Computed example of a mutant assay.
Amino acid sequence: MPADPLHIVCPHCHTTNRLALSQLGAAPDCGKCHQPLFNAKPVELDEVAFDKHIARSQLPVLVDFWAPWCGPCRAMAPAFEQAARELEPRMRLVKVNTEAAQSLAARFNIRSIPTLALFAGGREVARQPGAMGAADIVRWARSHSTP
């Protein structure tokens, strides 16, 4: 994890906030919209918001590339939500609907869904296709992120 202060992108207004590492667990709010920076739920992102979160956040970002018509994607959604409760505030979990954001799916060469991709420092560091349970998502994400 980077040294103080961290840059954290708000899941509501997508403004970049500066936050001391020691404040991560203190339920911090966004300086602009005053909404919680963490709500223990995956954040739905479009292409513009996705790029902000990947480029500006100093937290690892775990992305679930999914589609509404995909049965395994819908089956994995509750597990991904549970993983968000366990992994935040040390990691941001986001969902990208590949039907709504087809250019993102193409840019990252998403060939099967669901696909999890972990980003750190603005780049993809790990990828895992296929549905997983919450414990497996948490274990996989932690094994590929820096402490």
Rank of each mutant, 00 (worst) to 15 (best):
P28Y: 00
L116E: 00
K32P: 03
N97R: 13
A55H: 03
E99A: 09
D136Y: 00
G31R: 03
N17G: 07
A117N: 02
L45H: 02
W69A: 11
N39Q: 12
R127G: 09
L21I: 09
G31D: 08
V43A: 02
V63A: 00
K52D: 13
G133F: 02
E124W: 08
N97S: 15
N39I: 06
G31F: 06
S143D: 15
G71W: 01
A40C: 09
N109A: 07
P28M: 01
E99H: 01
Q23S: 09
H144W: 08
P68F: 15
A55E: 03
A101M: 06
K95R: 15
A126W: 01
P68Y: 14
V138F: 02
D136R: 05
C70M: 03
A126D: 04
F119G: 01
A27V: 04
R56M: 02
T16H: 06
T16W: 06
A101E: 14
G122M: 13
P72G: 12
L21D: 13
A55T: 03
W66K: 12
G25T: 11
A131G: 14
A105S: 08
L118W: 00
L93V: 11
Q58P: 00
W69D: 14
M132T: 07
A131M: 15
D64G: 01
G31H: 08
A101P: 04
E44T: 07
A134F: 09
R107F: 13
A26Y: 02
A120Q: 14
K95C: 10
P89W: 04
S112P: 08
C33Y: 12
K52Y: 10
G71S: 04
W69L: 09
P78C: 15
S143Q: 12
A84P: 12
C13T: 07
R18D: 04
C13Q: 13
F80E: 05
V138N: 00
L116F: 11
L62G: 06
S22R: 13
A20V: 09
K52G: 03
T15R: 13
A20Y: 08
V61P: 02
S57H: 15
M132P: 05
T16S: 00
P42H: 04
P129H: 06
V138C: 04
V125L: 09
A120M: 07
V43T: 12
A141W: 12
F119W: 10
L24M: 01
G130P: 04
M91Y: 03
Q23H: 06
P28N: 00
F108N: 09
E86Y: 09
K32T: 13
L118A: 02
P36N: 06
S143F: 06
A135L: 02
A100Y: 06
H12Y: 04
S143N: 13
A55L: 00
T146G: 15
Q128T: 05
A67P: 03
G31Q: 05
F80L: 08
G25P: 00
A55M: 01
K95F: 10
W140D: 13
R107D: 05
W140E: 14
E47I: 10
W69M: 13
A117R: 07
D29E: 08
M132E: 05
V125Q: 10
F65V: 03
V138W: 02
P114V: 13
P11L: 05
L59C: 03
P129Y: 07
G31V: 09
L104D: 02
F80I: 09
D136W: 01
E47K: 06
A101H: 05
L19G: 01
